[in-house]
Simulated assay, not measured.
Amino acid sequence: MNKLLNCALSAATWLTLCVSSASYAQWFESTGHANIQNDDISRAKSVAIKDAITQALVFSGARVTSMQTLVDGVLTQDQLKINSHGEIQKIEMISEDRRGDQFAVTLRLDIFPQQEQCPASSFNKFVAITQTQLKHREQAKLGQIFDISKASSENLYKTLSNSPISTRPTAYFNFPIRVGEFFTQQYDYSNALLEEIATRSNSQYVLLSQLVDISNSEKLNNDYAFWQDESYQRAYNIDFVLFDGTTYERLWQKSYRGKGIWPFEKTDRIDVYSENFWGSDYGQTITDINQTLSYDLQAAMACLETQGKILHIENDKLVINLGKAHGIEKGQILNVAHHNYLTDAAGNKMPNMITTLNQVQIQQVYQQSAIAQSIDKQPLPNIQINDVVELANLAL
């Protein structure tokens, strides 16, 4: 493994891939970056290390999921959410560098790749990032941060957009929506709202969230230390739930809990879109939670199927809402399926997908759409607009 071959640079992710001559191991050289907030070099270094490891894992076909501890002299006592298709054998620190308010760390990783990977993971899944709902609006009075719902959702969208993962976000955070019913145990939620969001954002999946607690605790500093600025611990507790916008199934759900120092005066009115806010300990707490969520979401969605809908029918040809951005290529074969519901004895509706014998082949591909033609070049019987198309021969 001392001889390295086939080095290729990816400018988009600052990642250099070096494949060793042995087929059973791969060396990756990856550079992670982080902003330095409040001159906290230690925290910036930790974030940069995690960024470098995440890029290497994703580039190697990894899924960033569960908690492991990496102990190699470099990451002692540091935990990162990884459970990859490749196992990290060794990590070496090559360099670290500070330039202005940016900190960079370059690592060299020895990753043992796992051969099996679900075929669906090679296709991109689009998920609508909706505006989170503040459950207790009165908690936003401190700092007058009533726009925290939109600002934190926008931050999540940017985090997902900048991550080298197959989960692709679409922006739907400009519209406030009521999400409380989606987090109840009765599953009594509106399918119509999910369908509307999925259709308007052209996304197969819909991510909903609610901020359940942003309250502040007692002051951290002493009342007698009148020369000190007031500071508080403030909670940031948020729940997420992922739905399929086609079948309306609840696919994944998780809660995140965090606390950060609120360093502002009680009477200050804080701009939640400002660098002053996001550079604070509390703003960094939100960013860290959103980064963790991006890892978990990638893991939850990696093996989900990429499905599309029929937008237009003309004789033996279809227009579908899948394209290059989803990983669709000319010549691929797709199945056509009908989507309806079955009702159980209690009156609950259950999604039911019926795959037909009809198959189509991709003829023309655009960024967000494609034109497909029936295999036998004959008009497709009993096919309707909004019927589902899915890639054929994707056996897990």
Rank of each mutant, 00 (worst) to 15 (best):
T247H: 06
Q185F: 14
N315F: 13
Q185G: 06
L322H: 12
A370R: 08
G143D: 06
A34K: 04
K324L: 06
L396D: 13
S42D: 06
H338I: 10
T199G: 09
L107H: 11
A44L: 08
Y24E: 15
M301S: 09
F277V: 01
M301F: 10
D40E: 06
N335H: 14
T285Y: 00
Q102K: 13
Q298F: 14
S166C: 00
Y205V: 06
T65Y: 15
I328T: 13
G32N: 14
T199N: 13
A299S: 06
T356V: 12
Y172F: 05
N237P: 14
D244H: 01
M1Q: 15
E275H: 09
V212Q: 03
L109T: 00
I165D: 02
D110I: 02
D376T: 13
T16Y: 06
K259N: 08
A325E: 08
W14H: 09
V272C: 03
K81Y: 05
V74Y: 07
I286G: 01
S66C: 08
E196S: 15
F123W: 03
I214M: 03
K317S: 12
Q368F: 15
S46E: 08
S274V: 11
S153Y: 09
Y366F: 12
I165Y: 15
D147G: 07
A56F: 06
I49L: 08
T184H: 03
I270W: 02
D244S: 11
D296Y: 08
R257Y: 00
R250T: 14
N2E: 05
K324S: 10
A345W: 11
N237V: 10
Q253H: 13
R200S: 11
Y24H: 10
I111C: 04
L251C: 13
P379I: 02
D316R: 13
I313M: 05
H312K: 05
L396G: 12
A225V: 05
I310W: 10
F59Q: 05
I165S: 03
A302F: 03
K158N: 01
A151R: 00
G180Q: 15
A48L: 12
L134D: 12
A345T: 14
D72S: 07
V389W: 05
I88M: 03
G61T: 04
T16M: 13
F226L: 14
F183I: 00
M67Y: 09
F175M: 09
V64I: 14
L15S: 12
T246C: 02
S280A: 05
T159D: 01
Y366I: 11
Q102A: 14
Q186F: 13
Q26V: 14
D147A: 01
A48I: 01
D97R: 10
I261D: 08
G347H: 10
Q117H: 09
A370V: 09
N340H: 14
D223E: 12
Q359G: 12
Q117P: 05
K135I: 09
I375M: 11
W262P: 00
F183G: 00
T16E: 13
T287Y: 02
I371G: 11
G260F: 00
S152T: 05
D229V: 09
T69Y: 01
I145Q: 02
W14G: 08
R178F: 03
W252S: 15
K317H: 09
G260P: 03
I289A: 07
Q298P: 02
V58T: 14
R250F: 04
C18A: 07
I333T: 14
L304G: 06
A56I: 10
